[in-house]
Each structure stands twice: as C-alpha cells, then as structure tokens.
Design a protein around this nucleic acid. Sequence first.
DNA 1: CTGTTAGCGCGTTCAA
DNA 2: TTGAACGCGCTAACAG
Lengths: 350, 350
Amino acid sequence: MEGNATLFDVARVAGVSLATASRAINGSARTVGAELREKVLRAAQELDYSPNAAARTMKRGHADVVGMIVPDIADPYFSGIASGVMKAADEQGLMVSIASTRRQSSREAEYVAGFRRQRNRAVILAGSRTSSRAETETLKAEVDRFEAQGGRVAVVSQRKLPVDTVVVENRQGARALATDLTDLGYRDFAVLAGPRDLLSAKDRLDGFRTGLAEAGVELSREQVVNGEFSRDGGFQAMEQVLEELGGIDCVFAVNDVMALGAIAAIRSRGLDVPRHLSVAGFGDISTLRDMAPRLTTVRVDLERLGRLALEMILSSEGGAPRTRREKCQVVLGASTPGRKPVGRRSSARG
Amino acid sequence: MEGNATLFDVARVAGVSLATASRAINGSARTVGAELREKVLRAAQELDYSPNAAARTMKRGHADVVGMIVPDIADPYFSGIASGVMKAADEQGLMVSIASTRRQSSREAEYVAGFRRQRNRAVILAGSRTSSRAETETLKAEVDRFEAQGGRVAVVSQRKLPVDTVVVENRQGARALATDLTDLGYRDFAVLAGPRDLLSAKDRLDGFRTGLAEAGVELSREQVVNGEFSRDGGFQAMEQVLEELGGIDCVFAVNDVMALGAIAAIRSRGLDVPRHLSVAGFGDISTLRDMAPRLTTVRVDLERLGRLALEMILSSEGGAPRTRREKCQVVLGASTPGRKPVGRRSSARG
DNA sequence: CTGTTAGCGCGTTCAA
DNA sequence: TTGAACGCGCTAACAG
C-alpha cells in the first residue's frame, strides 16, 4: 500500500460524500448524523487515514505549528524555556518547531522568514535582544511581514520589538542581588559582563551597578570584563580578571553558565570558591542547583516564561502588543557566604 | 496589505507565466533565461513574496521538516542530541519540529502520528526503548504507517525497531566503567538503576554487572535500587541506599542527572563525596564537567548522536535499516579517587 | 527556453 | 442533515 488514504477514499468506503467525511472527522460543524459519523470513523480507521495537515494549512492559511527561535538549545536556560513552550503547546494541540541560531542573533530574521514560509501560526523569539540597530531593523521588517500574513509573534527578554513580550526583569533581579551581596559585606566586585551588545547582559550589569551604587559601591571600568555568554566566555573573562585585577572579593557573572566557567577558571589556579573568591550567577538553571558550594544566583522561572509567551500569543486577538513583566528572585548560596559575619539577610538560603 | 503575495502575483508583475516564476524561484530545472529570472526575483522581492511551504508539501507529498521526539528537552542529555540534529538539519535546509513526551514513552506513538499528519520527511526518536512489548508494538505500528507514507525513521538508543538506528553502546561503556572502578579498588557498590523497563538503564546495569563480574565482584539484589531516570529519582534512590544498605563504597548512577541527585542526597546527610562515598554517573553532560569533585562518568558525544541520526535518515535510500554503533569512553574524576592507592589506571583523569 | 494545464487533499461555500 | 463544486498555491507534465 503505497502513499496514503485520502479523505476521498474514506468517503468512498463509508459511502458518503467528501463533505460529510470531512465534517465527521474534523468536527467543524457538528451537523453529521451519528450513524454516518460512525461509518466514516470506522472507514478512516480501516484505511489508516491520516489527515493531511498541509492541505488543511493551505485551506486555512496557517499551520497549527508555532516556531521557536533560541540562541542555543543545549544551553539549559533556553531548553528550560523551550520546555515550557512545548508543554503549553501540547495542551493546545500545537506542534513546535525549533531553530537554534547558535548565538548568531543575525540569523533570527532568517528563521522568522523560514517560519513564514511554513505559514506557522506564531513565532516565539527566546533570546536576548541586541543593541544593534541594523540587526533590530532587519528583524523588525521580517516580523512585520510575518504578522502581515496573519501570524503572531512573541518575544521573551526585552521589549524592543512592537510585539507581545514577556520581559525578564533582569535589572531588578541584578539590583536585588547587588543589595544582598553588599549586605553580606562585599565591596570589591568584578563583573563578567557578557557580550557588549546583548541587552540581557547589559541590563543585568546596569541593575547590578545600580544596586551597588545604592550601597555606596562603585564599579570601575576595569572591574567589568566582557566575554561570551557561555561557559567558555566565563572562563576566559575570569582568567582576565585573575590576571589583571587584584583585591576582588566577589565576582558576578551575568549568567549561570558563565559563573560555572568562572569557577572553573578560579579552581584551575588552585584557588577555592568561596574561600578565596565568592561567585554569583544569574538564571538558576536546574543542573547547577546541586552544585557545592550552592551557587548564589537570581532565579528565573524558565518554564513559566515559555508558557506565558505561548499563552500571550494564543490569547492576543489582534490588539495592541502587550507586555508581561516577570520578576526574578535572589537565591543566596554558599558560593557567597559573606565577607564578614554580618547579620542581615534579605533572602533565604538555598 | 492583507494576506500574502502568491506565485501567481509574482508571475503577473514580472510579466511571465506561473511556471517560469516557479522555476526561477525554486530553481528546480535551471531552464530559465537570465533576464526573466532577474525580473521574477525582483518582482518577488517587491511583493515580499514568501513561498507557501504547505502548497509545496501538498504537491510533493512530504514536508522538508524532520520531527524529533525526546523524553524531556530540559534534560541536557537530550538537548545535546537535539542540538546535533538541529545543526545538521540546518546545513541541509531542513526545519526541525520537536515534541517532548515528558518521560511518558507511551506518547511516542502519538507524536509519530502527529508528524505523519504533517507529512514530515523523517522522524528521529531520541529516547531509550522500553521493554514493554505492548508499547513497542503500538509504536512499531505507527512507525510502519509513517514509513508506508514515504517517511524515514531513525532511533537513537537501542535497536528494537526495524529502522535506522544509532546504537549507544551503553553496555560497553558501563562495563569499562566497572573495570576502571574495580581497578581503583572499589568492591562494594550500589547501583541507582533507573526505571526497570528502560533499556538504556537496563543495559548500563547489565554492562556494569559484567564488568564487575570480570573483576570477581558480585552485585546482590539489594545493591540495585530502581528509581526515576531524573535528578529526583537519583536523590530518592540514594536515600534508600543510605537507609538500607551499609558498607557501600561506590555508587553508580545510570545517568548523570541521577548521579547529581545522589550526590545531593549524600550531602543532605552531612556526608561528603568522595570522602565517605564515591559516585559515578553516565553521559558526561557538559554542565556537570566543572563540578567539584569532577564526576566520574562515561562520555557520550551527544551532538554527534544527533548528527549521525539525521545523516542516516538522509542517506538511506529505502534500503534495509542500518545500525551504527557509537562507543562511549570512561572519564575518571575526583568523585571516585579510588579506595586504596592502587597504581593501575586504564583511563585518563578528567 | 517558456507557457498551459491539471491536479495535490481539504474546507467551505451553496443547493438540495 | 447531506452533497456537489470550487479554489487554496504550487509543481510537474506536456506543448509549443
């Protein structure tokens, strides 16, 4: 039996018309008699009938698929978000296509175009926005085209595009972290700041700086080291700090995998965390929660971000783009035990 | 501008026929004059033309999309494989749809059916096969239907279905691990064995047992504790071991996240790894490579598995299903420093 | 090299 | 409640 049974075949076997078969199977209008419906369903079963989603897509103009674009699916931060999207999508009977830009944000636009070709119902962009004006314009143009076609777009990170957005409160989280760390007695920081043009990285740095300032602590230019947003980026940035900077007592890496790299770099010099240096991250990815010492970080509910993005997309009926802000919460761990035994603690220990 | 420009519009604007426009744009047969081609491309650009993939799919009978089914996309093991699949797919101009069964392997069949509706060109099943005969039969039936329709299927794990398979040499890896651990002087093991019906878990246990036997070490029934294939499963299984078993000096968790849970459980009792107990895992997921102590584990090249699966699918031209075996390599870390100072080491330290 | 035409499988009119 | 017929956008024959 080559190829596939078609709805026409089903109708023939059931002895009804194409239209009746269609109605019985997708149940759009419930105007099919119980008896015929039964017949049709039986025929479909018998023939291993599988509705042709492409035909349906052509007819309706859009596919029941949502596209998702991430910088790196192997990064727990994004696989966490993807997990939330997929779970919510599953509940809605939607399929999810995922594309990974491999950290080249310039590729986002290409993938949006790809999802447009597929006539996907929606696209979720899960990576940080960048400060590149040209890149943003290119992406915006593609997003506009996607929407002109009837598709919906949502972004998880910053509100830089006029679309539904789940804003991660990076500033607020990093600021709270700075407050807690200064409360713990730290005064001499280094920040492993990620790429200069990544807004998530920039916002976390800015928020951190604000929190420090409120405690009367300044961050000099040398105390901020840029690097890739990855484990290796953290490792290298940390090496630079260790070589060029003295008198640091706490390092803030703007994401958890960078913090991981930083810790590795510190240890590779024979130093210990937190004895010689304290380290904090951002994100609270689950694989790191059992690390010893427990990494101080800022918790982001990744699955929730994904779920919210999908829900926004489905509930938006052509209205103005909405923004949903998601707060982050500091988790203090043994990686930042405090410089001196000060009493105050503004967050629970992890 | 509502809706979307169609190929017909492009043809009209360019002043050529539909066929010419089609040929110029997808370049199937290169029989279009340079001048007309230029005109067509310009018209397409002007109109923001986006080829309708659904129409193409309907015409050709299959979509240039490959479906992937994983037990849990948030598990680094599977996001690693997914990363490999996506990279290879990108190079081939294919899109990837991903579905997560959330560890309910019974849902695999449903998703295969879903991908059949989409007329996806191929499906990759990335989770362990199970020992459930009924489940396997159901899945096989669905896979057969998928293939009857012209789709290709590949599996990463065990060869239990008559399809292209990338076999992970779990037995060999676990056996080598047992050899190395016994060489290190360990004699009293506990195995956190995962779910009873998961073949990956079972194979790792079997291989480990074989390796132990070769060193004259037996594993009693009580020394094997089943549990979920997750961090929490490892935690709980380890708690059981700690409560019910004495005299253990090394714990083998059949995957890395279980090992992570095990270590957490050990520490929650105020014990230390490796001072009080040594721990080994399986998989070598990247986030754990910087853990202290370095987790002894068995390295699996996750991205490679994904890439190989995709390549098999694309290269298979209806021939008999092929099998590709991928070896695993032991990585010894400080989580298993050795029971006594014995000299022999058969693998490099991580 | 280019144009005309006939479906691919389905949903949805409109009639009956 | 059911059926007949059209068209979604495209590609692959077949003509010219």
